[in-house]
Amino acid sequence: MQNLSEPFPTEQNNRQQLRKALGVFLISLLVLLVTFFLSVKIGAFHISISTLFKTLFQYSGSKEQVLVATARIPRAVVTVIIGANLGIAGALMQAITRNPLASPSIFGVNAGASVAIVFAIVVLSINNSLLLVFIAFLGGLLAVSIVYGMSASFKGGNIEVKMAFTGIVIQAFLSSITQGLLLFNEDKTESVLFWLAGSVTGMAWKHVWILLPFSLLAMLISVSLGRFISLISLGDEVAQGLGLRVALLRRFVIVLVVILSGVAVSVAGPIGFVGLIVPHMVRYLVGRDYRWVIPISAVFGSALLTLADVCSRFISFPYETPVGVVTALIGTPYFIYLARTKKGDLYEG
């Protein structure tokens, strides 16, 4: 439930909020730049700042420069895009379901993509990474359509609750299939296990080119829908009363969420927590105006994931730890803090 007793924003309030949101946006962009820089610089092989600039402005093809240009930078770019995708997808989900615990995985995107990838690698022995990305995306899409189709076929009740129920059941079903496949094909499991934990290791420019078009399109649409999302987050009655076609918009937003989280999971595996906590942080800082929450969630998500990726290189240096593990390690304490102090809006649901 939203706190409707809050007075409507006055003109002055509005301007104040605008300034605050703009400030948060700029600061978070700055943080993102710093983490991006760290992500390129730090690793098993240290890159000096001068090498970095030389790579950008006078490329000579030395060993270090090749490393920066073909491994570090694409990896960092992929991380930024995926973080932004997950941040926006989480914000959208929590707005349309009005449930502070909602995240894209409720629709079964992650479970579907996981089962598809494991099936493709273990049973069909597919190694082509581009093909795998495509298969994962299809798997995610299929799972979501099943969840949506089934919950729509149940009469009565409201769609969010039904989707949560169906989603959790389908997820359990799919993940038991995933585990079964893994269990009976031990020899091929190691790389799959790493993917399943969520990881941005070994990303190259081709991954960027897969991610970029879908993500950019979905992000732009999401940001432009901000004012409608704000309305929908106030409750169906309010939104309907203000002339919004709620059911249509909700379906459209679900498609956006699936695209955003689907491409992310297909490239990097299921990375939890970013979509769950980023929207909470952002709403805590700038309020519930989704015209701001959505873009800032994107930047926050990118910064958080990049930071987690940098940390993941230290946990068992020089080996890498799946970044999904790190986001959970960072996210949990923050989430408990949110649950204990009532400052966050965890209780509105």
Partner: peptide, 25 residues
Amino acid sequence: IVGVAIGAFCSAGIQLLVAKSGDNV
């Protein structure tokens, strides 16, 4: 809420161990 968060934390730990353990997987 705390239960969900801590549960996710533990399962991240499980995934980490499973991914790292190699032989005993």
